[in-house]
Measured scan of single mutants.
Amino acid sequence: ARCQGVVCAMKEAFGFIERGDVVKEIFFHYSEFKGDLETLQPGDDVEFTIKDRNGKEVATDVRLLPQGTVI
């Protein structure tokens, strides 16, 4: 199932997405972002798939959504 959220933090090689369905942040590695990383910034709406890696939830297949998609 695809989830939606808003990019809330960006570091050197990874970032965090504030999920739209639950009050929780989820980790994503930049290699999982399908698009131009140069244009990705905090506040952007994205959709993603949640996978379990070593007992921790991570966002994979992260894709940009049109602004205003995530309420």
Rank of each mutant, 00 (worst) to 15 (best):
D61W: 03
K51I: 09
L40G: 02
L37Q: 05
I50V: 12
V58N: 07
G15A: 06
I71F: 10
E47C: 06
V46W: 00
V70S: 13
F27H: 07
V46T: 00
A1C: 13
A13T: 08
L64Y: 15
E38S: 14
G5Y: 02
L40Y: 02
V46G: 01
I50Y: 04
L65R: 09
T69H: 03
A1V: 14
G35W: 03
F14G: 13
T39P: 04
I26M: 05
E25P: 11
A59G: 04
K56R: 12
E12V: 07
A59T: 02
C3F: 15
L40P: 00
V70E: 15
R53T: 12
R19C: 11
V6N: 05
V62R: 00
D21G: 13
D61I: 03
A59V: 03
Q41W: 06
V22G: 13
D52C: 10
M10H: 02
F14L: 04
P42L: 13
M10L: 15
E12H: 09
F48S: 01
T49N: 07
L64P: 14
K11E: 11
A13N: 13
V70L: 12
F27Y: 10
F28G: 01
G20N: 11
E18D: 06
V22P: 13
V62S: 02
R63D: 07
F16A: 08
C8Q: 15
D21L: 05
G43W: 02
E47Q: 15
V62N: 00
K34D: 11
V6P: 00
D61L: 03
R63E: 14
F14R: 03
F33V: 05
F33C: 02
I17F: 00
S31Q: 15
C8V: 12
S31A: 10
V58S: 08
Q41L: 07
D45P: 14
E57K: 12
G15M: 03
V70Y: 12
Q41R: 12
I50R: 05
C8G: 11
G20D: 07
D61M: 03
Q4G: 03
K51Y: 08
F16L: 09
E57W: 06
G15H: 03
V46H: 02
R2G: 09
I26W: 02
Y30S: 04
T39A: 12
F33G: 00
F16G: 04
D45C: 13
T39M: 10
G15D: 03
E57D: 11
F48Y: 08
D45E: 13
G43F: 01
C8E: 02
Q41T: 09
R63K: 09
I71T: 14
R53E: 13
E12P: 14
R2A: 06
F28T: 01
N54F: 11
G68T: 07
A13I: 08
H29P: 11
L37V: 13
V23G: 13
G35Q: 04
L65D: 04
N54H: 14
V46Y: 01
I17T: 01
G43D: 02
G5C: 03
L40N: 02
D44G: 05
G43A: 01
H29W: 05
P42F: 05
K51A: 11
D21Q: 11
I50P: 05
K56M: 11
N54T: 09
V7D: 00
V7R: 01
G15F: 01
F33N: 01
E57L: 11
D36T: 11
Q4S: 04
I50E: 04
R53L: 13
K24I: 04
R19G: 08
H29G: 06
D36M: 07
V58L: 07
V23R: 11
E12S: 10
D45F: 07
